[in-house]
């Protein structure tokens, strides 16, 4: 990982974080200047989240592929705990849930670690689904059967399956070269863009937000925020195209645009689930548990699409188009 691209990327992000932290601390210390202290606190809280996230990622990257996959596996496991805790389940779901937690989630991540795309791409959406349906049926409790099994299924797909595409990027063959440090940059690129689009969405909604997307679900996500964030993320992605190996600048811009749209969709989805359960922001049905799910909702939706986009882009790069 000692190549120039990685050094520039890491130094740049570290520098930005340092500057932002300095500004945040500066603003937090002057309460007299009519700055919105609530916004400053939210900003500083978000920065703290980024420091933690960046630190964990740095350590995992340094330790290698297995450690990074394990880190994402633990994040998935914790997010699934939050998801199922948030969702009402019945006694009849207990044994299906047990296997979902102790068997399906870990095995899925082992398959990701061994890069068995042919197996892990169907393991949860097909086999885990069939198992959950059958196991719940075997308990004899048929009350709201489809509703209950769908909840477990949704939790598995969003918290485990989708998130796992982020570390799967590490072993994606990008063009001619074998997977290497470029893949770590790809993963970092994805996470950076997801976080950036999330922050931009808030900024644009605050600056020019007028039309809410769905007031009942989220009171601060606007169409202006969505478009502004997608455009800014596309620009940043285009500027950073050199960091993501198979991408050309225009492809990177497209990827940034798509990541922002999906991140937004993920945020809306999580907001809808929380609203349904009567939990407000940074949801805690069980008090005292800050949301891992809140942190990764955008990543859940963006990761699989970015994975397949990268796959398509690197295939196109490997077989140059022969003009018709």
């Amino acid at each position: 990982m000692n190549d120039l691209h990685t050094v520039v990327l890491v130094t740049g992000v570290l520098g930005l974080l340092l500057v932002a932290t300095a500004v945040g601390q500066f603003l937090a210390r002057r309460s007299d200047r009519g700055v919105d202290q609530g916004a400053v606190r939210a900003f500083n809280q978000r920065l703290r989240g980024w420091w933690i996230m960046g630190g964990l990622l740095a350590v995992a990257f340094w330790l290698g592929v297995t450690a990074t996959v394990t880190l994402f596996g633990l994040v998935s496991f914790w997010a699934l705990r939050e998801f199922i805790t948030l969702t009402p389940t019945r006694r009849g779901d207990h044994r299906a849930l047990f296997w979902v937690f102790v068997l399906f989630t870990p095995v899925h991540y082992v398959l990701v670690a061994y890069n068995r795309y042919d197996v892990f791409s169907v393991f949860l959406p097909v086999y885990a689904t069939l198992f959950v349906l059958a196991r719940v049926a075997f308990t004899g409790d048929y009350t709201r059967f489809l509703e209950r099994t769908a909840k477990i299924q949704a939790g598995l797909v969003v918290c485990v399956y989708c998130v796992s595409f982020a570390p799967a990027l590490l072993q994606l063959p990008t063009g001619t070269t074998a997977p290497g440090s470029g893949n770590f940059r790809l993963l970092f690129f994805l996470i950076l863009l997801v976080q950036f689009s999330d922050a931009m969405q808030h900024v644009w909604s605050r600056l020019i937000g007028r039309r809410l997307v769905a007031e009942e679900v989220s009171s601060n996500r606007t169409w202006e925020g969505l478009l502004g964030s997608a455009t800014s993320t596309a620009l940043l992605a285009a500027a950073l195209w050199w960091a993501a190996p198979p991408y050309e600048p225009w492809q990177a811009a497209l990827a940034g645009f798509v990541i922002a749209l999906l991140g937004f969709a993920g945020g809306m989805t999580m907001a809808a689930i929380k609203r349904d359960r009567g939990v407000k922001d940074h949801g805690t049905l069980v008090v005292g548990h800050g949301g891992v799910l809140d942190r990764i909702d955008s990543l859940c939706f963006a990761a699989p699409v970015f994975y397949h986009l990268t796959l398509a882009v690197s295939r196109a790069a490997a077989t140059p188009l022969t003009g018709g």
Binding site: R81, F101, V286, V287
Partner: peptide, 22 residues
């Protein structure tokens, strides 16, 4: 709170959900 979902009555194996002790 919620510990009955971790290990309900009559079950042997716990499901690692989240609980809260106040």
């Amino acid at each position: 709170d919620n510990l009955n979902r971790v290990l309900p009555r009559g079950e042997f194996l716990p499901v690692p959900l989240l609980s809260c002790i106040s």
